[in-house]
């Protein structure tokens, strides 16, 4: 881990009213690093990664992404968002646009890429996620797994430095989880993009993560290599959590 970190959270705190949702979060993510974040529901995982692209605002501490500190500056926020792709639990594709339009909208209007070039890039990524034949359909005509792969391709079309995944497979029917995870594994192995992924897919964590982070009650309780994390958890809460999710 040399050079400047891609993402650096220092003493980040956030409250919803009286509720302390993030407590003194410190996290450094190096360029190209792949991190899996897990923890019980409501522990603040989504909130933490959503602070990184300012979908949520933190109230204390600093967040620096690719050398830019997040503050109330629209231009800086938009600059960071251009370079940080996000994949949501519920896909959030734009239902009134075709798959191809979903993929080219931001490159054309945000990156000012010429339309033909944006479409070529879009087709390239659709091939990567293995659905080039769906380019002219509307999201409503695709299965959940296909929609999520489109959502991944949409984020990739912006050529991001960081990809954030917020439980990308937990809204999918079981038989579609594998096709999405496959795409994510390939992405991790081939692209070198920095990845932060909230997921409980432990197989995925084992095969691609450099580090696993465990959160509970708004705190990072434990962080370790996947090997150590699964076989030799230190914290009681981690042990309890692992025993619960590994049961089924």
């Amino acid at each position: 881990m040399s050079g400047q970190p891609m993402i650096e959270l220092t003493n980040v705190n956030k409250w919803y009213g009286d509720f302390h949702v993030l407590t003194d979060i410190n996290l450094k993510v190096a360029k190209g690093e792949r991190i899996v974040i897990c923890g019980p529901s409501g522990s603040g995982k989504s909130t933490m990664i959503r602070c990184i692209n300012r979908l949520e605002e933190h109230q204390a501490g600093t967040i620096i992404v690719d050398g830019i500190e997040l503050a109330n500056d629209v231009k800086k926020i938009e600059a960071i968002r251009r370079d940080v792709g996000m994949v949501f639990q519920h896909f959030n594709l734009f239902p009134h646009l075709t798959v191809l339009e979903n993929l080219t909208l931001a490159p054309i209007w945000v990156r000012k890429t010429p339309k033909a070039e944006a479409e070529a890039t879009a087709m390239k990524y659709l091939e990567r996620v293995r659905i080039p034949d769906q380019a002219n359909k509307y999201p409503g005509q695709l299965s959940g797994g296909q929609q999520q792969r489109v959502a991944i391709a949409r984020a990739l079309c912006m050529n991001p430095k960081v990809m954030l995944f917020d439980e990308p497979t937990s809204a999918l029917d079981p038989e579609m989880v594998a096709e999405v995870l496959d795409v994510m594994v390939t992405l991790a192995q081939e692209s070198g993009v920095t990845m932060l992924c909230v997921t409980h897919e432990m197989g995925f964590a084992r095969s691609v993560a450099n580090r696993v982070i465990f959160m509970d009650r708004g705190q990072i309780v434990e962080e370790n290599t996947p090997e150590e994390f699964f076989h030799n958890p230190q914290n009681e809460r981690t042990k309890l959590f692992l025993s619960q999710i590994l049961q089924h």
Partner: peptide, 25 residues
């Protein structure tokens, strides 16, 4: 809310988000 968030996350500005994503729907 996810429509607003997806547009934000792609780095679309306010008027782009409004014109391309929010108003048409």
């Amino acid at each position: 809310k996810g429509q607003y968030e997806a547009a934000d996350a792609l780095g679309l500005g306010y008027w782009q988000k409004t014109g391309f994503i929010i108003l048409p729907q």
